[in-house]
């Protein structure tokens, strides 16, 4: 579905992604995790073509992502970011339907889809008429998710979707999200720096450090057969902070 083939990316002198290859398993949730600067967000942005790799190729459905194909490909991907991705000049509903309208969907089809999604993300329908600034952080992320799912994309990319939420709302949305992922059976790539979240969502976990994959596999594998001491250190450090501070991004 989404494959990175020997991809590298530098920002000036800094290496964000060293040459790496990664194949995202279809219909599963893959979590990209690592300390800050490990390149996890960069990987996600490479997948949706917001960044162009310096070398290597990003493949989507067996086709390389190029300026000619990227727009079409994006219609089959949903992208949710941590905060601030909703357009403040549009109501929540318009945010969700913007692309469908632009693509000329019939009004009835749009309405049906919005109704479906409202149910799915459990948003009170009255919220749709409001502008993003009048919604709570949790509601905003539910609307963002609706927007990402509007065209029923094959792949869902989420960059720290819970990162800016306070703990109670976060726990709520976290369980809702997992339910949604399980119900939809979509290919999901989720970026987080939080091991707890990774364990909660991830069918497969990709641990990154300095733009390189340290280990890739189910949580069990990372716990039981760490590829190097860093894996154990990273997991242990996160466990220690689990009960002190968990909400910071």
């Amino acid at each position: 579905m989404v494959t990175l083939d020997n991809v590298s990316k530098t920002y000036g002198p800094e290496t964000a992604v060293a040459p790496l290859s990664l194949a995202v398993t279809p219909e599963q949730t893959t979590v990209l995790i690592g300390p800050s600067g490990s390149g996890k967000s960069t990987l996600l942005r490479l997948m949706i073509g917001l960044l162009v790799p310096d070398a290597g190729a990003v493949m989507f459905d067996g086709e390389p992502l190029t300026s000619a194909t990227v727009q079409e490909a994006r219609h089959r991907m949903g992208y949710v970011i941590q905060e601030g991705g909703l357009f403040p000049h549009l109501s929540a509903r318009r945010n969700v339907t913007l692309l469908a309208r632009h693509l000329g969907w019939a009004e009835r089809r749009i309405d049906a889809r919005v109704e479906e999604l409202t149910d799915l993300v459990q948003l009170a329908p009255g919220r749709l008429a409001q502008r993003p600034d009048d919604l709570s952080g949790g509601q905003r992320q539910r609307v963002s998710l609706m927007r990402a799912l509007m065209l029923d994309p094959a792949v869902l990319l989420l960059d720290e979707p819970l990162g800016a939420l306070d703990p109670l709302i976060r726990a709520d949305l976290q369980s809702d999200l997992r339910a949604i992922f399980q119900e939809l059976q979509k290919t999901v790539v989720l970026v987080t720096h939080n091991m707890h979240e990774a364990a909660y969502f991830g069918d497969e976990i990709v641990l990154l450090r300095q733009g390189q994959i340290v280990q890739q596999g189910p949580l069990q594998a990372l716990l039981e057969t760490p590829s190097e001491p860093f894996v154990t250190d990273f997991i242990r450090a996160q466990r220690q902070t689990l009960f002190s501070s968990d909400g910071a991004s």
Binding site: M77, Y79, H102
Partner: peptide, 19 residues
């Protein structure tokens, strides 16, 4: 983030500008 969101939606440059 707003510009990126618009781009990630798959809007063309012209549509992004207009919408």
């Amino acid at each position: 983030p707003l510009l990126e969101s618009a781009e990630a939606l798959g809007l063309s440059a012209a549509a992004k500008l207009r919408l």
